[in-house]
């Protein structure tokens, strides 16, 4: 078994077609697969990153956006350390659905989960939601905010690396049980995440 010091579960949610799978593919494989079919159920990827010479294993759960997969995807919220809520900056309806998603998160996820709002597809010319609108929304709901383009590989690496760094910071300050290679099963779910009350933009 490979050695790593921390293991974090990151779950991506958001409407169908906003580019969740593309973000994950871009980060884990460096690819932008055009003509990506809709995700069925939940996809699962692992990537180990290094921050301050510490190995961090990120378990990334890429969920299907369509309504009929909701009861599958909801079951992953509770054990998530970070939730990435994605919308498409060129598609108003995907932004309008955000409150519904927040309600779901409220209901199923740990109250201490790290929440990040991501406006994807900034490579598109036909932007419908200005950056400050997304940022306002994030601020009002105590979320981090970042705009990305999976296609142009913009901010994708940064998104995941900053989540990893933030989670590691919180884990260290809380001194949660470590996930060492011998017992990767110990889970410090509820003790992991800090208050997440910081609503500043990621910098």
């Amino acid at each position: 078994m490979e050695d790593y010091k921390f293991l974090f579960k990151v779950v991506l949610v958001g409407n169908a077609g906003v580019g969740k799978t593309c973000l994950v593919r871009r980060f884990t494989q460096g690819l932008f697969p055009p003509g990506q079919g809709a995700t069925i159920g939940v996809d699962f990827m692992i990537k180990t990153v290094e921050i301050d010479n510490e190995k961090i294993k990120l378990q990334i759960w890429d969920t299907a956006g369509q309504e009929r997969f909701r009861s599958i995807t909801q079951s992953y919220y509770r054990s998530a350390h970070a939730l990435i809520l994605v919308y498409d900056i060129s598609c108003q309806p995907t932004f309008d659905c955000l409150p519904d998603w927040l309600r779901e998160i409220e209901e199923y996820a740990s109250s201490k989960v790290l929440r990040v709002l991501v406006g994807n597809k900034i490579d598109r010319e036909d932007r419908e939601i200005p950056a400050h609108v997304g940022e306002d929304f994030a601020q009002r709901h105590s979320m981090y905010y970042l705009e990305t383009s999976a296609k142009e590989a913009e901010n994708v690496e940064r998104l995941f690396m900053e989540i990893a760094a933030e989670l590691m910071e919180q884990a260290r300050s809380k001194e949660l049980p470590r996930y060492d290679s011998n017992s990767p099963t110990i889970n410090g779910r509820t003790t992991v995440i800090g208050d997440g009350g910081c609503c500043s933009r990621m910098s």
Partner: peptide, 15 residues
């Protein structure tokens, strides 16, 4: 691996 990861949730139940 996906199944294993979900089953590891039972590990935190034990904790």
């Amino acid at each position: 691996v996906k199944l294993e990861s979900c089953l590891s949730g039972l590990g935190s139940v034990a904790a």
